[in-house]
Computed example of a mutant assay.
Amino acid sequence: MRSSRRHPLLVPGLLCALAVLAARPTDGVEGDGGSGTALGPQVARLYEDAAKATRQYEDGRREAEVQRSKALEYERLLDGQRQEIDAMHEDLGRIARAQYRGAGGLPFTARMLLADDPDELMRGQRAVSRANLTVSTAVGKSLRAEKRLAADEAKAQAAWQALDKRNADLVKLKKEIEAKLGSARSRLQGQADASVTAGSCPGAVRLDQPEERAGPSWVAPVETYELSASFGSGGSRWANRHTGQDFAVPVGTPVRAVGTGRVLKVTCGGAFGIQVVVQHADGYYTQYAHLAAVAVDQGDRVGPGQWIGQSGTTGNSTGPHLHFEVRVTPEMGSALDPVPWLSRRGVPL
């Protein structure tokens, strides 16, 4: 599986993800009404929403793992601080017990009166006091450090738990979107099949195109895919050999023009079902077949990455996929292997 789009997620972006996705209009997807010109954009939007929810969940899951690791590290540091404090308290106890035993349990004033060398006793007392102060200061610092670590641990655990909750909500939302998407895809394919059976091609569906930005001159015909039947492969479905490269994708997946060109024809019926043929300036032609909807009309100019239709399973097709061909003429019989053709143009599949 390939995907060329990867978006890093900041935690604030994840926290508002549910509100953004939940606010997207469904345009009546759950009902039975709506025309083919409405269904195509619905499927495209739901397709993007499902992909976005998946990306946000994956990014959120990784962030939750980071927060979980932080919480565990803070807990380890806290254990170390507690052990140091316990050791310091034990040292103070030993000092106090030694003082008491050395003086026979007498108060310090009585020991001064009975001492053979009061100055020596004072020096010893000052040394013990300095030791007490040093240990008390160290214990105070350790307690303050423990307090800070405990606060950091609480923050890390709270962030971890919040991210886990958001991820669980995203999983639920993603399932809801995918259920709507499955229903809309089924209806879109049904309308496409009805059009092909009636012999009348559906009109162009004007999809909301992806954001335009400078990019390569050539792209793959779909963005996320698995390669299936390859060029030249044999099988009972083809009279001779397979004349293109198949991309296994769900119904409704946006299909892209691989490069700059002009739409030569849009037809439906026959083995290829609904199809688009694009003429390129270098004398080659590309074909996009088994579509469920088209987003261009004959004569339209298209650029690399522009959505020209949506995948389906019309015509001689055993399941949802895009059949993609590269030809040296507009017609069948002039196809060449599209994989090395795209590779030479900087598009490895």
Rank of each mutant, 00 (worst) to 15 (best):
Q275V: 06
L77W: 14
Q125I: 05
D337M: 08
V255Q: 04
K174W: 01
F231W: 14
D297L: 03
A198E: 14
A127Y: 00
V276W: 01
L106G: 09
W238Q: 05
S195W: 13
D246I: 15
G60Y: 02
S217F: 03
T253P: 12
P338V: 14
D337T: 11
E211F: 02
F324T: 06
G80Q: 13
V43G: 02
R82S: 11
R148L: 13
A87N: 07
Q189Y: 04
M332T: 13
P320T: 01
V339G: 04
L188A: 10
E73H: 11
G13H: 12
R101C: 05
K147P: 02
L121R: 00
T267Y: 08
W160E: 07
W160R: 15
E223R: 14
A127P: 01
G270A: 11
T109D: 00
V139P: 00
Q287H: 11
Q191S: 10
A179I: 08
Q161S: 12
W218E: 03
P25T: 15
G346K: 03
D86A: 12
L336M: 14
K174I: 04
G305T: 04
R76K: 14
S4N: 13
A110P: 05
L336E: 13
G235T: 08
D297S: 14
F108A: 10
R97S: 03
L188Q: 07
L188P: 10
V139C: 01
A248K: 15
A50P: 12
T54P: 00
V135D: 00
T286R: 15
P254T: 09
Q287N: 13
L39G: 06
R237C: 02
P202K: 04
R45S: 04
A204T: 11
W307G: 00
A50C: 04
T37F: 00
A115N: 05
L9G: 09
M88H: 08
C16Q: 13
Q99F: 04
V294D: 01
R126Y: 00
L188Y: 07
L46M: 10
P25M: 10
Y284D: 05
K70F: 12
L163W: 05
A158E: 03
Q310P: 04
M122D: 00
R241H: 06
L133Q: 12
R68Q: 13
Y74D: 07
V326E: 05
L133H: 12
S142A: 12
D59G: 13
V347Y: 10
A44W: 00
D86P: 02
V249C: 11
L15N: 09
H321C: 01
A50G: 15
E120S: 07
S142M: 07
H321A: 01
